[in-house]
């Protein structure tokens, strides 16, 4: 069975587990997703765990009776006893995520650009069509920041999925203020970058731009097939 088939059958089995086990299984799978093991072994472990949990469920036992209450230690022991990803697998995994992120961000950038709105307006009013799209320094920089941030966020969220839940020491208004400050700070950085990098570096034809975005999507699909 290949990874895709395993994933499909695991998703089906996943629907059979009860709510409590499901939430724990989600955290475990999240933790396994960023571990240094191949997608194939992630799905193999997932299937084994689902079998254990469903059998325990049939016996009227909880997920804790199967894997204990220290899920992180359990997962670390499992990961330690599985073959590590090869260099080729690591590179392919990185390329797969990068190509998909780049294609999505590229697509969003095109859809939300004022040039596409101008183009649609020109089509409706019958004016001459302008397919040129300016690429600024800030758009390239923000594109890079978004991709790096996406990688970092996924890594942090998945790696801490099994950490014990800490009690919130800060009061609600303080948390709200801190969240606002952080959000505002990020927004300020983005505005500064957009302001200083507003000069056009080069222009690109929208058709060429679309071909590049579709090329990135095709590259993502090819990497998935190779994997």
């Amino acid at each position: 069975m290949n990874v895709k088939m395993l994933n499909k059958s695991n998703n089906e089995l996943d629907k059979e587990i009860n709510e409590e086990s499901s939430s724990i299984m989600t955290d475990i799978v999240c933790y396994l997703r960023v571990a240094n093991i191949s997608d194939y072994y992630q799905e193999i472990v997932r299937r084994d765990l689902l079998e254990m949990v469903l059998s325990a469920q049939d016996r009227g036992e909880s997920i804790q009776s199967v894997i204990g209450e220290d899920y992180k230690t359990f997962c670390d022991e499992v990961i330690e006893n599985l073959p590590k990803r090869t260099r080729k697998e690591r590179i392919l995994d990185f390329c797969e995520t990068f190509f998909l992120c780049a294609a999505i961000l590229g697509g969003i950038n095109l859809i939300l650009s004022k040039e596409i709105i101008n183009l649609l307006g020109a089509i409706i009013s019958g004016q001459p069509l302008n397919f040129q799209m300016p690429i600024t320094a800030s758009s390239i920089l923000l594109f890079g920041i978004n991709i790096i941030a996406a990688f970092i966020f996924v890594e942090i969220i998945c790696k801490t999925a099994l950490n014990p839940k800490k009690e919130k020491h800060l009061s609600k208004p303080k948390r709200f203020m801190l969240g606002g400050l952080a959000g505002g700070g990020v927004m300020a950085v983005f505005i500064v970058i957009a302001w200083f990098g507003k000069n056009t570096l080069f222009t690109v034809n929208m058709v060429v731009y679309c071909v590049v975005v579709l090329g990135l999507l095709a590259a993502y699909k090819i990497v998935k097939i190779i994997e």
Partner: peptide, 9 residues
């Protein structure tokens, strides 16, 4: 011994 202890072994 829980099944989860045996699984990594």
């Amino acid at each position: 011994i829980a099944e989860g202890t045996i699984y990594p072994v």
